[in-house]
Design a protein around this nucleic acid. Structure first.
Length: 578
RNA sequence: GUCCCCGUGGCACAGCUGGAUAGCGCAAUCCCCUCCUAAGGGAUAGGUCGUAGGUUCGAAUCCUACCGGGGACGCCA
């Protein structure tokens, strides 16, 4: 049950009964003040203008026409013509009871779509660093949400396993082998190996050309190259999977669909686009000129799909991926999470794909951009020694800090339990710090903010959850199958109930916009309202009437269930004690 | 040069299709643990929403210009 939608539909219906307003929009908003009720209809003002009438008069007509008696206790016209909807406590109580009895917490499934989510996509030539965090966890969360809403989600880890950098690595490895050095040792620290190769690529005469030749050989299926390449891939994938495990991300080996997987399609894509007259040869390379993105002088933008020396680029791979996802996987939506620098690339890719029939008309192609992580100095994030921060190290640090905090406080947890709690808190804090931001711009990485356990953080949400579980434990009541009749009386109870029913609104907007931060803020607000309720409305204390106690227990339990479900959709774990 | 993104209290951020007195967290000051876990609650202080125009009954939100920051723009991904 989506309350927002329900109320909006009722207003929409009401408008059809008013002459001249039959097709008018029905703008509804959530109220920001309790005295204005829970929802407000803002359409009267615009409508009054359209009908050349008085807005408050129009509002009066709408109030008369709208049928909300079953759910609203009052409809007030305020200010220039706002219609404030105050929901009935009895109705809210009943909705809470219904949601509590429903495994899905009253979240209905949507009509099933096939949604391809392209996430994480690390560059396998390097160890995962902090910059890979966003694509991985934002993609993971959005995929979970869409799945929860009843869709078929195909996760695709578009690993960077096929570009120029592998030619570079192979060339370097070849030289090391020729010099009788043990290659497996060299591979054990991929990061160093990559750095060495990169230095040679940038500085050493002739090395870059050799590297490029290796790429062509690799893409052409040369057996020796493939063998060396495989060595890098295996080491690197194993490393990524360790990180995913630590991060509690739902990505498996089966989700890997790296760039190399599209290799057999690349030549065909280019040939097809040439046949259709979309791609042409220019300066030795195969390119598509895009008039749609021309500058003021009429010069079209250029999208290169094959290099002058032969050899394909990530643009070619992305076109192949587009085709595969749209036609073979039958995707209704394709959502790609990468950093914002690639925005133009994906815009161009879509233009080319649409022209060339590489994507079905009904497939939506969406890029979910986000900013890069910067250091305090505003430059790309580095360690004190100048290296990039490894993602695995960041995660370990978070867990260590949580462990330290836990060991400093009184606790009835065993050492083992403490460790587990610290892991969930530490990892949760990092993920939440990132997921709760909507920035498409670059943002400053700060250890202390990211590893804070106070305020608007994951531990705050986890803490709210444990508090509720603790109440039930103390009262010796099983949460499984617990039901009670709910009777909302206090303001804090009502605010909490209203927020609880808005869970579906939150996750639907996450699905629609691919923005998990909306779920973060929802869960934070819910927790915050619970904390207020918890302070103001005693549950187990002496003097609380039995029916009130039962009602408050039910309300609390629905909060716990919503928090647990919501956090799970963010990929953040909960615990019974902390 | 062209295009894209961003500019909200000391810091870090929310503000959905324009709506009623711009929210939240850190940090600051002050309260609250014989009481369901103080990783908490309550209160105070702090903002001409980059600047200037425009559209509108109404603008942080839409439009234009400018300033400032970041990014992308043919053989990296």
């Amino acid at each position: 049950m989506n309350v927002f939608q329900l109320v909006q539909e009722r207003f929409q219906q009401a408008l059809t009964k008013i002459e001249g307003a039959e097709n008018a929009p029905a703008p509804l908003a959530r109220s920001n003040r309790p005295e204005f009720g829970e929802y407000q209809f803002n359409g009267a003002m615009a409508l009054a203008k359209m009908l050349k009438s008085n807005p408050r008069e129009i509002a009066g007509k709408i109030v008369e026409a709208v049928e909300l008696d079953d759910i609203a206790e009052s409809l007030d016209i305020a200010g220039p013509g706002f219609i404030n909807v105050k929901l009935k406590s009895e109705w809210l109580s009943q909705q809470v009871e219904t949601a509590l009895a429903d495994e899905r917490l009253s979240v209905e499934k949507e009509d099933e779509q096939t949604v391809v989510v392209d996430l994480s996509s690390p560059n396998l030539a390097k160890e995962m660093h902090v910059g890979h965090l966003r694509s991985t966890i934002i993609g993971d969360s959005v995929a979970r949400v869409i799945e929860f809403l009843g869709h078929k989600v195909v996760r695709q880890n578009h690993m960077g396993d096929w570009g120029t950098q592998f030619g570079m690595l192979i060339a370097h490895l070849q030289d090391k082998l020729a010099a009788d050095q043990v290659a497996t040792t060299a591979l054990s620290d991929l990061e160093d190996f990559y750095r060495e190769a990169k230095v040679r690529f940038d500085d050493e005469e002739g090395f870059a050309d050799r590297a490029r030749q290796y790429v062509v050989k690799l893409q052409g299926g040369d057996a020796d190259c493939l063998k060396l390449w495989q060595q890098f891939i295996d080491v690197s994938i194993q490393h990524s999977e360790e990180v995913y495990h630590k991060l509690n991300v739902k990505l498996t080996h089966d989700d890997i669909m790296g760039e190399s997987a599209y290799n057999p399609m690349l030549a065909g894509i280019v040939a097809d686009l040439k046949d259709k007259g979309i791609a042409v040869e220019d300066q030795g390379a195969q390119v598509v000129f895009l008039e749609e993105l021309a500058n003021k002088d009429g010069e079209p933008a250029v999208y290169i799909i094959e290099k002058s020396g032969g050899g394909f680029l990530y643009s070619t791979t992305d076109l192949a991926a587009m085709k595969y996802r749209s036609f073979d996987l039958n995707a209704d939506r394709i959502i790609i999470f990468t950093d914002a620098r690639q925005a133009l690339h994906f815009k161009q890719a879509e233009l080319v794909g649409r022209k060339g029939g590489l994507i079905r008309e009904e497939t939506s192609y969406e890029h979910g951009p986000f900013g890069m992580m910067l250091g305090q100095d505003g430059k790309p994030f580095k360690t004190r020694t100048g290296g990039t921060v490894k993602l695995a190290d960041l995660l370990d640090e978070a867990v260590e800090r949580a462990e330290k905090l836990l060991s400093e406080r009184d606790s009835d947890l065993t050492a083992e339990e403490q460790k587990e709690v610290a892991r969930k808190v530490g990892i949760g804090a990092i993920k939440y710090a990132d997921l709760s931001k909507n920035r498409t711009t670059d943002y400053i990485f700060n250890w202390d903010t990211m590893l804070s356990f106070e305020g608007d953080t994951a531990p705050y949400l986890q803490y709210a959850y444990t508090r509720i579980v603790s109440i039930f434990r103390k009262a010796n009541i099983d949460t499984n199958g617990f039901t009670a009749s709910v009777a909302i009386a206090e303001a804090q109870e009502k605010a909490l109930a209203v927020k609880l029913l808005q869970f579906v609104e939150a996750i639907e907007s996450v699905s629609k916009n691919s923005t998990p931060h909306l779920l973060c803020s929802y869960l934070y607000e819910l927790s915050s309202l619970f904390m207020t309720f918890y302070e103001a409305c005693p549950i187990l204390k002496d003097g609380v009437a039995e029916d009130v106690k039962q009602s408050r227990l039910a309300l609390s339990l629905l909060v716990a269930k919503t928090l647990k479900q919501g956090l799970e959709l963010l990929g953040i774990e909960t615990m019974e004690k902390m």
